[in-house]
Write a protein that binds this DNA or RNA. Structure first.
Lengths: 343, 343
DNA sequence: GGCAAAATCCAAAGCGCTTTGAGACCGCTA
DNA sequence: TAGCGGTCTCAAAGCGCTTTGGATTTTGCC
């Protein structure tokens, strides 16, 4: 069933039917109702490709999945996508995923533009000085960055958590508990979010007159085994930390595993704190009461995905007044993995 | 840059240029080379929408993400997608994601067909008698099922792990170690994969003359807190199991967490075995040596995604002779979480 | 050299939609 | 009754590509 068939069936022109379906004012309410009714019962859906060709617009948002490094193929990423896809679906948009080697990513954006495949893209995992922003701006492809570059000029659309503030708060929380040797198991510090978390951690320590010990700092892909390895290495130090701050709950899980293997309990022998993205696979179901119950800085990455979708769609449809950033504050949640330092 | 511009720039007709680009034999090698060269330097990409309109074919594969239940928005799903998207990218296909309530899924497929949005779909999480297969067959939309329905007639394309065999093997392994009280922390048994795992577990016990104790069986969404809760509940039984078999490494992690909290060690006090999908966020990096090291039945879900993509593309392009299933055997991996039962 | 066959190339139609520019019809006023 | 603004509808062009059917040139062979 296409427009032509539908309109002859209705005894109307294609123009009228198209206008009726797209809510143009030139068509009477009576006609519109008749058209909508017929379209529904004939199960008619306009072809997005044809509409795209005619209008130049496409309701598809692209995301690039970097391959090789499994950095992105992780629960953080998938929860973000889950949220975003809900946002898209609500607005009649679809999500297009394309796998690419990291060095191919620029080429994918060029392809998106010259083939007109998508109406906009979401940029994942921004770095301190990320060439993708300039590229997308010069390509004229609407985009939203999940995170920030950290460069001076942030006059592009982004959505981010206040990572510096979050980690300053977390570190201060541990300091108030009496801890002075606090380890940081951070993400890759070329990434802005990790750099900012590091900055918050450093600031808190310095403001309290505590020294920064490089031996207590780790930076890598935030996977579970990394949290484990880092913790093992911390425990083997001559002067091990009494508190550990993790950049992801995945690392925190590895951390707890390492502690357990050494007969130590989080919140008893060592305080453990983490950033909590509220990953869905860690959430207890309705009738289950327990969860890891980490003391954490919390901000749902799924919500971030949903909101990102909304913002990007506004940008694409020109509803957004000023293309600028949105910064969320993480919430401090007290759990069972921290306790005052015992003398 | 479009075909018309490119062809006038080359002094050729659109026909010739199109044929040159699409590898038709009617064009001389010399001309083809010239065309390809020009296309490359002009950064020309054909519009997929226009090609779609002209040919009726589209190199896009759809996936539906069920919302509300977070069943699918989990590391298993995202690793599958990661693998699939690589398979698509290698063949010039793209992946389209659409979020939908479970009861809307049928409607999405109808939309896909009538709007011609995708060339095929992947069906996730098949149930014992899944209405989606019949629907897709009657819609004429090419598809591949990740898993199986379990119905008698399996004459549709699917890719699955031999779940029954895997869990029979796992259970037998534990039995050989001397265990007689073996718990099963399974997925939702309305899902085929979980039902088949249960069947394998039951078969092994029965073949060894062991009794099936319903108290040792759990079935739910495979998330971490579920593994934790189930284990706690097992430990509180009057006659707790000496071995626990988990359907997912996520559950196994929750299981280990529960054991640790009760001062028990996997592989020492209780044997723990699991199905291991080789989830990427649990894989150690190059220079890290340790991993949870579960004794497990292993089959990479990411590989499954990649292979599924290839098979589906073959089906769509008519390269597949007989639309039928592919069954992978899981591999037994001996880790540190199992040991002989001590008397 | 001549002629058929093979090799190249082309003009134009068509995919399903949107949208321009214009026509038909209505009820009014002058 | 003629004229006018409004309301509703339409025919046709065009988006960028593929592909049919045909034209033109080149090649191979006697």
């Amino acid at each position: 069933m296409n427009l032509k068939e539908l309109s002859t069936q209705l005894g109307l022109s294609q123009t009228t039917v198209s206008r009726a379906l797209n809510g143009f004012p030139e068509v009477s309410e009576k006609t519109r109702e008749r058209v909508l009714q017929a379209a529904r019962s004939a199960n008619y859906r306009p072809s997005p490709s044809a509409a795209h060709l005619a209008t130049g617009k496409t309701k598809v948002i692209g995301h690039v999945i970097p391959t090789t490094q499994h950095r992105m193929i992780n629960p953080h990423f998938s929860d973000f996508l889950a949220g975003a896809s809900e946002g898209y679906a609500a607005a009649g948009y679809d999500m297009l995923l394309r796998a690419a080697e990291p060095e191919e990513e620029a080429g994918v954006y060029e392809d998106f533009v010259s083939s007109k495949r998508v109406g906009g893209v979401v940029v994942h995992g921004p770095r301190l000085n990320d060439s993708r922003i300039g590229l997308l701006q010069s390509l004229g492809l609407p985009f939203l960055v999940h995170g920030r570059t950290g460069a001076e000029d942030e006059s592009y659309p982004w959505l981010d958590v206040n990572n510096k503030e979050a980690f300053e708060t977390a570190t201060n929380y541990l300091i108030k508990l009496g801890h002075t040797r606090i380890a940081l198991i951070n993400g890759l510090e070329e990434m802005t979010f990790a750099a900012q978390r590091r900055a918050g951690y450093d600031a808190a320590l310095q403001n309290s007159g505590l020294s920064l010990d490089p031996e207590l700092n780790f930076s890598a892909d935030m996977v579970e085994p990394y949290g484990y390895e880092a913790t093992i290495s911390l425990l083997n130090q001559s002067n091990p930390p009494t508190a550990i701050l993790c950049s992801s709950i995945l690392c925190a899980m590895g951390c707890v595993r390492a502690l357990a293997e050494n007969g130590m309990r989080p919140g008893k022998d060592v305080s453990v704190m983490t950033f909590d993205d509220v990953l869905s696979f860690l959430q207890p179901s309705r009738n289950q009461t327990s969860s890891p119950a980490f003391t954490s800085m919390r901000s749902s990455i799924q919500d971030a995905g949903r909101r990102s979708a909304e913002i990007l769609i506004d940008v694409i449809e020109g509803k957004s007044s000023q293309p600028t950033g949105v910064c969320w504050e993480a919430e401090l949640v007290e759990g069972r993995t921290t306790s005052p330092l015992r003398p």
